[in-house]
């Protein structure tokens, strides 16, 4: 239990991840499902970023007057990449949803079961 308390940052990511998963599974509206997917992505980003935290760490920028400890630059770089990929997938998913709406006039997944 104590370990959970010292890792409260990771626990927050787990909770965020489960919220996103809930939205994907329960919501019928495709845009809400996509929002759930985005929440899950954010949870993963927050998790990796918290792995890069260093207590009292400075930004990893080596100008004049920079002094250690520095925050971990690697997760920041990886997550910057990840955010752009998340943007790409969201854009593609949204445009598919727009197309579904134009074709069938609905984006409720329950209604989409019946259409041909």
């Amino acid at each position: 239990m104590r370990a959970l308390w010292t890792n409260i940052d990771y626990v927050a990511s787990v909770i965020l991840f489960l919220i996103g998963l809930y939205a994907i599974m329960v919501k019928g509206n495709l845009i809400k499902k996509l929002m759930g997917l985005n929440i899950m992505e954010t949870a993963v980003f927050a998790f990796v970023m918290s792995a890069g935290i260093v207590t009292d760490g400075d930004a990893p920028i080596m100008g004049a007057g920079a002094k250690p400890p520095f925050a971990n630059p690697l997760p920041q770089g990886l997550i910057l990449t990840g955010i752009v990929v998340a943007l790409s997938t969201s854009a593609l998913a949204l445009s598919l949803i727009i197309r579904i709406y134009r074709q069938y006039g609905t984006i409720e997944s329950d209604d989409l079961w019946g259409v041909e």
Partner: peptide
């Protein structure tokens, strides 16, 4: 998560 090393340690 409870098995991971504490957040913020160097």
């Amino acid at each position: 998560v409870s098995l991971l090393p504490p957040v913020g340690s160097e």
